[in-house]
Design a protein around this nucleic acid. Structure first.
Lengths: 349, 349
DNA sequence: TTTAATTGGTGTAAGGTTTTATCGAACCGG
DNA sequence: CCGGTTCGATAAAACCTTACACCAATTAAA
């Protein structure tokens, strides 16, 4: 394949001039410019990005690390990151960790070798050493919910509190008093943050209510299992909030299988507002986490850090808001409620 | 950052030896090897992938072009591609075209500049010129359903026929005689192939049945619109097959909104078997397209072509199979059917 | 008129790795 | 003791581009 030299020869100029034409990095007279452009066409010249990166020291590549693209939480996020990157002329390496920290490390190592301009570590599972290595190499990084922004390291902080509080207020307004929570795996920071937000909101409203917390795996199946635990517990709460939509959907499915109707017998609310939340039956009441915004801000944070080196990363708060759909309804307070619901109410009153 | 030179100096060997240690590309005595390895540790040496690619001429990068990661058809496919690539030490650039051929071209151009080792063009929208350019650069390519494998170009051919025929046979066995089809955008090859498979199967069974074909956009909304056209048509078919699950889901939602129950009044079958097909209410009867296999084979085809240059690409047939869930039921043939269903039956009998 | 700045270029040294040619030493059979 | 291999390693070219230093010619300012 023809290189910049061939083009320079063809156009009768130096390689430097060709480079300037290609990159618009300095004024070139119209005549020379058009000669070069014709030569580029004639040679079918495509600049070699590796040579370019090697010479210039930057790669216009972003590394994106997520847990699992098949988890419906991620696609929209990935799409937003990809779009934002594309607009800025960056390509993105996608990496699925499958929730495996070692695999994440492996990927990050490759990213460093490829001299990526920045890394978006949008997972919960990450190794301390990994982060140190990135810091040492001065690679801009943006995290999701790690809580600490450092040098070259930005953080997207999701405001779980607002959305979850809105959700609980909504349930309370509907007459719910006993609200259970299906949390995610406690070793994941985002799961912990969600649970804390739930607990503090509930604490404020019902200081001496039972904890009513169950744990799932952030997947459908975990929601099912948690729901069957709840069912087995005897006293059915009037409402259940899940730490993510997938578990909420799983819970609904389990409830239905047990003959407990949603929202007639139990109200269910999710978190994330994945695409299918609006499509499920009943449509899921949930807290919207603006994944598109999140992805966009991730790239912006990276760009920010890249243009201001030797500077502290930034901290961006991502808002959440509550969305009412069809999986929540007034709590059954009157004696004509179902057996389960009545029981639950009795406990509270 | 330290380079191979620093390592060489530290270990008291030449850069070539370090290179050979790193790449296992020639025998190096144990003593020298361990000295080099210690030096690598000491220098925290990470090879520079750009320099490496520049010198060696290959990049261990794959380009993956898809239409839209937010379309639930793709995540599993992407995941499989990514996993297969990872196992072989390749990184993958992800690119969403958003169904825009121009954007696809833009991406492919970048891929060429980055000297990707291969490109998986898993979209329907693609430009002739683009493909020519890839052919000229001798970049291995794998397509999805383009129908023609050429030099360096492999093709994954989905066996739509089998799955769709199975689906129709299933419907016929349930007593359905009037089966409509909601096709995808006719300008997409995969949409045409699906439609053809439907028509030929139907033709064989009911040579003189009405065509009963409607068109959607492969998205939920298109399914809704097609369903409302079907409803507006007056004679409701007893079964509807959609060219993909998303449209099937949209159709079900629209039917439900119009008071037509699925599967009691109309049976609906989808295609693709996306993750949510099993979760929807009713669970969707559909044709499984093994996306995981598809992704795996895409990478394998690429590897095959890469290791046998100057050779014809390969053609792989991807099987499909029918899956019965809850969105299909026996056709209402007796007069106790709903009004719509009765009407439809009358037309056929 | 001299000096300084601007314009439109050129030449070439990095940049970090792989790879080819080369080389000394050791070994081996004859 | 000698010519031929093999072994283990080296030196230097090549890969392609960018960026810096420099230059000649023209223009503007002093």
């Amino acid at each position: 394949m023809s290189s910049i030299k061939d083009v320079a020869r063809e156009a009768g100029v130096s390689t430097a001039t060709v480079s300037h034409v290609v990159n618009n990095t300095r004024f070139v007279s119209d005549e020379v410019r058009s000669r070069v452009e014709r030569a580029i066409e004639a040679c079918r010249y495509y600049p070699n990005a590796h040579a370019r990166s090697l010479a210039s020291g930057n790669s216009r590549i972003l590394g994106l690390v997520i847990s699992d693209i098949a988890n419906p939480f991620f696609p929209e996020l990935v799409k937003a990151v990809e779009t934002a990157a594309f607009e800025r002329g960056y390509d993105v390496f996608l990496s699925n960790t499958n929730y495996d920290a070692e695999r994440a490390s492996h990927y990050v190592r490759r990213f460093i070798e490829r001299k990526v301009a920045g890394v978006a570590l949008l997972t919960s599972e990450l190794d301390k050493k990994l982060i140190e290595e990135l810091a040492r190499r001065e690679v801009p990084v943006v995290f999701l919910d790690v809580g600490e922004a450092g040098l070259h390291m930005s953080n997207l902080r999701v405001d779980y509190e607002t959305g979850i509080e809105e959700a609980i207020l909504h349930l309370v307004a509907l007459g719910h008093r006993e609200i259970s929570f299906i949390g995610g795996p406690p070793h994941l920071r985002s799961a912990r943050r969600r649970l804390e937000a739930f607990r503090s909101a509930k604490q404020r409203l019902f200081p001496d209510a039972a904890d009513g917390v169950y744990f799932g795996d952030f997947k459908i199946e975990g929601g099912r299992r948690a729901a069957s635990e709840i069912l087995a517990g005897g006293k059915l709460p009037t409402a259940v909030m899940a730490a993510n939509d997938l578990m909420a959907l799983g819970a609904i499915s389990e409830f239905r299988a047990a003959g407990v109707q949603v929202p007639r017998d139990v109200s269910v609310v999710g978190f994330d507002d994945i695409a299918f939340a609006a499509l499920s039956e009943p449509a899921l009441t949930t807290v919207n986490l603006p994944l598109g915004e999140l992805g966009k801000y991730a790239v912006e944070a990276l760009m920010e850090t890249m243009s201001n080196p030797d500077q502290q990363g930034i901290e961006i708060t991502i808002p959440t808001h509550f969305i009412v759909r069809a999986s929540t309804a007034p709590a059954r307070l009157s004696p004509d409620g179902t057996k389960h619901a009545r029981k639950a109410v009795r406990v509270k009153s």
